[in-house]
Amino acid sequence: MIRVLTIVCALGLATSLAAQGTEVAFGAVQQDTSLPVEVSAQSLSVSQNDGSALFTGDVVIGQGEMRLSAPRVLVFYTKDQSGIERLEATGGVTLVNADQAAEADTAEYEVNRGTIRMVGNVLLTQGANTLVSDTMDVDLENGTARMNGRVRTVFQSGDN
């Protein structure tokens, strides 16, 4: 009876998660967004006109413990070219921070704000638990993420 009640409660909670945004922890520690951003890729194309750089082919972005990978990443530099303003990753994106990983169709990293917005078929894996949503907004400095748009999850019972 207790197991049935637990399952019913979990289903009720999962239904409420689907109806509204959900805030979850992301990353074991807060990310220092002032750390250097390292980029590796197969090729690079730079545009002096708009202050951007296009990295393609197995692109990996690293900053501290965080890793973001995608087939294509467009980098926009600050107006004075002293740093990176934002990164736009497309073609299937994977974000790893500590023991957590997230996947999405696209991602935009606002470096100065310390935020990442992942869009399209978002899948967040935290140990044995997974959450799925339409979008996920990550606040790296606080180590939190907010999932929105038809959030779904499955809770593992204590017996599994």
Score class of each variant (00 low, 15 high):
101 A>V: 03
147 M>P: 03
73 V>M: 02
63 Q>G: 12
3 R>V: 14
87 L>K: 02
104 A>N: 01
100 Q>W: 11
119 V>C: 05
124 L>V: 00
24 V>D: 10
70 A>R: 09
73 V>H: 00
35 L>A: 10
152 R>E: 12
127 G>N: 05
18 A>D: 14
33 T>R: 09
136 M>I: 08
10 A>V: 09
98 A>Y: 06
60 V>W: 12
157 S>E: 14
115 T>M: 05
136 M>F: 09
94 T>M: 12
135 T>Y: 01
87 L>Q: 04
10 A>W: 03
81 Q>A: 14
56 T>G: 07
60 V>G: 12
42 Q>W: 09
158 G>V: 11
87 L>Y: 00
60 V>S: 14
144 T>S: 07
79 K>N: 10
64 G>W: 04
53 A>K: 00
144 T>W: 09
27 G>D: 07
104 A>P: 08
71 P>V: 00
65 E>N: 09
35 L>P: 10
144 T>E: 04
46 V>P: 02
112 N>Y: 15
66 M>Q: 04
104 A>I: 02
95 L>N: 07
81 Q>G: 09
80 D>R: 08
160 N>M: 12
61 I>W: 11
128 A>S: 14
64 G>M: 03
47 S>A: 07
34 S>I: 01
67 R>S: 10
118 M>N: 02
47 S>N: 05
121 N>I: 01
83 G>Y: 02
26 F>C: 14
108 E>K: 12
2 I>Y: 13
79 K>Y: 06
139 D>S: 02
78 T>V: 04
81 Q>F: 08
13 L>G: 02
78 T>N: 08
13 L>F: 01
44 L>S: 11
41 A>P: 05
137 D>V: 15
76 F>E: 13
81 Q>I: 11
20 Q>K: 08
17 L>F: 14
86 R>M: 11
67 R>T: 11
130 T>H: 06
150 R>I: 09
130 T>C: 10
94 T>E: 09
24 V>S: 14
62 G>L: 04
83 G>S: 03
153 T>G: 07
120 G>F: 04
119 V>A: 01
144 T>C: 08
49 N>F: 08
12 G>W: 00
110 E>V: 11
74 L>V: 01
139 D>Q: 05
145 A>S: 06
111 V>T: 00
31 Q>H: 04
5 L>K: 09
150 R>G: 15
1 M>H: 10
18 A>G: 15
48 Q>D: 13
3 R>G: 10
15 T>A: 06
31 Q>M: 03
15 T>P: 01
72 R>I: 13
160 N>V: 13
143 G>D: 08
113 R>L: 07
154 V>T: 14
52 S>R: 01
81 Q>C: 05
145 A>Y: 01
68 L>F: 10
141 E>R: 12
159 D>M: 08
104 A>C: 06
13 L>W: 02
20 Q>E: 05
116 I>Q: 06
153 T>S: 15
14 A>P: 03
30 Q>V: 13
36 P>H: 10
143 G>W: 03
25 A>W: 11
108 E>C: 14
31 Q>D: 04
30 Q>W: 13
133 S>Q: 07
97 N>S: 15
84 I>D: 03
34 S>Q: 05
131 L>A: 12
37 V>T: 13
57 G>A: 05
